[in-house]
Each structure stands twice: as structure tokens, then as C-alpha cells.
Simulated assay, not measured.
Amino acid sequence: MIDDVAKECLHSDLREIREVLLWKLDGLDEYDIRRPLTRTGTNLLGLVKHLSLWESRYFGEVFGRPFPEPLPRWDDLGQRGADLWATEHETREEITGRYRRVWEHSDATIAALAIDSPGHVPWWPRPRVMLFNVLVHMLTETSRHAGHADILREQVDGSTGTAADYAAQQRDAAFWEARRDQIEQAATAAVKLGRTGPGHGG
């Protein structure tokens, strides 16, 4: 049986991980939050923009409670991928502010509905869902992108962690240089031992 305890646990975790994602932008200039940091262009502000769009859909139209600001249609192929980066005309404040408004709308939906309330996700193969399914999905999706943001932020300035208090306790650069060298040596040694192919059993 799925009950309100499960609902509150999932919702609490979602609220926490949202804040982590926004914290990853703190202290960075406009270029560093926007610039592509992977071969496919993944960037910090784009992750926030992407999550704001999809969370607004999942806790909005899926439950007949549309987010009150204009959104592109989910099946508009011309818009595919546009949510993953910010144009020069979109400000940090616009994107992060919209994400926070999405939270408010989502939180109102979650509070208003029972955990087994039905919804409809037209872009899923099995579109009939409950609030429980959508909470799990959005928690998973947000956590996945927060993990991306962890790596991107570390690439920019070496900052790691999930909150400002944690970041203040980081080890110094010499520790991480020594650890990286240790891991590099282990990787090189594994190759010399002949561990070169996938599925090598030992």
C-alpha cells in the first residue's frame, strides 16, 4: 500500500535536490553557467531550464493542473533540445525564477492530490499513471541532472558537494592531486596486467 508517508518522503527528497541544483550555479559568472562543458553541449543553466520545463509538465498538464505560463508543446519537434541551453537573451534570473515558480506550482499539486491520484502522460508508452509514479520519475530525473551538475561544476572550479556547508569542508588541492595520481597509476597498472578487454574475469 502506498501511503502519505511515501508521498512526504519523495516530496521532501525532491525539494532538497532542487535546491542542490540551483546551488551549483552560485558564485559562477555568466559564461561559466552557460558554456558547453561536454561534447554534446551540456551546461549548468541549461540543466535548470530543462528541469523547469519538464517538472511544470509532469505536475501540471499530467494532472489537469496546467502551469500558468506559456510552454512549448511536448510534441513540437522544432523545439526539441531548445530547453537544454540558454540563449543570450535569457537571463539567469529569468530561468532560476521560473524554476522556483514551477516548484510552487508542483508543490501545490502534490499537496492537493492523494498519492494514488490518476494522471495521464501522453508521451509515455503506458500513459495512465498515479501521482506516485510521477513523484518517483521527477525525483529520479532531478537527481540524475544534479549528478551531471556535480561533474560540470567540478570541471569549472573544482567545487564539489551538495550544499554550501559541505563545500566549506573540502580537502585542499594537494590531496586531490595525490588521489588523482593514485587512481591514474592503478589504471595504468591494470593495463600492464592485461586487463584490457570488456568482461575480463581476472
Rank of each mutant, 00 (worst) to 15 (best):
R171L: 15
D157S: 04
A174F: 07
G158Q: 12
R153I: 00
D165S: 10
G158S: 12
D165F: 12
W176K: 01
A173E: 12
K192W: 04
A167L: 15
E184S: 03
A178H: 03
A168C: 05
V156H: 04
R153N: 05
G194W: 06
D165A: 13
E177L: 08
R180T: 01
R180A: 11
A164T: 08
T160N: 03
Q170T: 09
D181G: 03
V156Q: 02
A174V: 08
R179A: 09
G158R: 10
L152W: 00
E184L: 11
D165V: 12
D172C: 11
V156G: 00
A163H: 10
D165N: 10
A173R: 09
E154C: 05
V156E: 01
R153P: 01
L152S: 00
A187F: 15
D157Q: 11
F175N: 00
T160R: 11
Q170A: 14
Q185G: 03
E177I: 03
A167E: 15
G158M: 12
D150V: 00
A168P: 02
D165C: 09
A190W: 08
D150R: 00
D150L: 01
D181P: 00
A189P: 01
E184K: 03
A168Y: 02
D157H: 10
R179E: 08
D181C: 01
A174S: 09
T188W: 06
A189D: 12
D181F: 01
A189W: 13
A187Y: 10
T188Y: 10
Q155L: 15
E177M: 08
I183E: 05
V156W: 09
G158Y: 12
A190Y: 07
A163K: 04
A187Q: 10
D181I: 02
E177D: 12
W176E: 02
R180L: 10
R180I: 06
Y166M: 13
H148V: 00
A167I: 05
I151L: 15
F175P: 00
G161M: 11
T188E: 15
D157G: 06
E177T: 03
E177P: 01
A163T: 06
Y166T: 05
A190F: 10
K192C: 04
L193D: 14
L152I: 03
T188V: 13
G194I: 07
H148W: 03
